[in-house]
C-alpha cells in the first residue's frame, strides 16, 4: 500500500512536469503529436527507472559510506550520461525495433533535468531501495501522462485561431498552467 501511495504521489499528485517544473524542455519540444510524445514518455519511464536504481546504488553504496557527499552532483551527472549511452548501445544490439522507436529521444534524455531531479529527490527523501524503484516508475509514468495529454491538446489547437503573440511556446505555457490547476485538484488524494 505504501508503495502504491508513493507511485501515485510521483505520477499524479506531485507530477514532475506540472508540480516541480522539471522536464519542461521535452514537454514543450516533443509535444506536437501524440505518437512522438508517447515514445518520448516510454523512453523517459525506461531511463528514469534505471537512473533511479543506479543513483540509489551510487548514493547508498559508494558516496554515503565513503563520506563523499560533496561529489554527489558530479557523480550523478557522469552516471546518468553513461547510463543513457549504455542503454542506447544495448537497445541497438538487443531490441532493434524498440531502438527505432526510442532512438532519437535517448540522447535528449541525458540533458533532461527530470532525471537528475529524480536522483536528487531520492537522496533528499532518503527512500529505501524498493521505495526508490516505485517512486522512479511513478515519476516516469507521470511525465508520460502529462506529455501525451499536452500533445493531444496541441493537435486540436492546430486549427485554432490563436492571437499572434501567443502562438508557439506562450500558448503551450498557458495550457500547461490550466493542466497544473487540474492536477493540483488531486492533492487531497494522498
Amino acid at each position: 500500500m505504501e508503495f502504491v501511495v508513493l507511485f501515485v504521489t510521483a505520477a499524479i499528485v506531485n507530477n514532475f512536469v506540472l508540480h516541480y517544473f522539471v522536464g519542461i524542455c521535452p514537454y514543450v519540444g516533443v509535444s506536437k503529436e501524440v505518437g512522438a510524445a508517447a515514445s518520448m514518455g516510454l523512453a523517459v519511464i525506461f531511463v528514469m527507472t534505471l537512473a533511479g536504481i543506479a543513483g540509489w546504488l551510487i548514493n547508498n553504496l559508494v558516496l554515503m559510506p565513503l563520506g563523499l557527499g560533496i561529489l554527489e552532483y558530479v557523480s550523478y551527472v557522469v552516471v546518468i550520461a553513461s547510463l543513457v549511452q549504455l542503454v542506447e548501445l544495448f537497445l541497438k544490439k538487443a531490441i532493434p525495433a524498440l531502438y527505432r522507436t526510442l532512438g532519437i529521444f535517448l540522447p535528449l534524455i541525458t540533458s533532461n533535468c527530470a532525471i537528475l531531479f529524480l536522483v536528487l529527490m531520492l537522496a533528499l527523501e532518503e527512500y529505501g531501495f524498493l521505495e526508490s524503484v516505485f517512486f522512479s516508475l511513478g515519476a516516469g509514468v507521470g511525465f508520460t501522462i502529462a506529455i501525451v495529454l499536452m500533445a493531444g491538446i496541441r493537435e486540436q489547437l492546430e486549427q485554432a485561431d490563436i492571437p499572434r503573440a501567443f502562438r508557439g511556446a506562450a500558448v503551450t505555457m498557458a495550457i500547461a498552467g490550466i493542466m497544473a490547476l487540474a492536477f493540483s485538484g488531486f492533492a487531497g488524494l494522498v
Binding site: F21, G168, A170, M173, L181, S184
Partner: peptide, 19 residues
C-alpha cells in the same frame, strides 16, 4: 504563487516579448 501561476506568468511575459 502556485505552479499554475508560474505557467500563466511565463505565458503572459512570453507573449509580451513576442509582441
Amino acid at each position: 504563487g502556485l505552479p499554475t501561476g508560474a505557467f500563466f506568468g511565463l505565458a503572459v511575459l512570453w507573449a509580451l516579448f513576442n509582441a
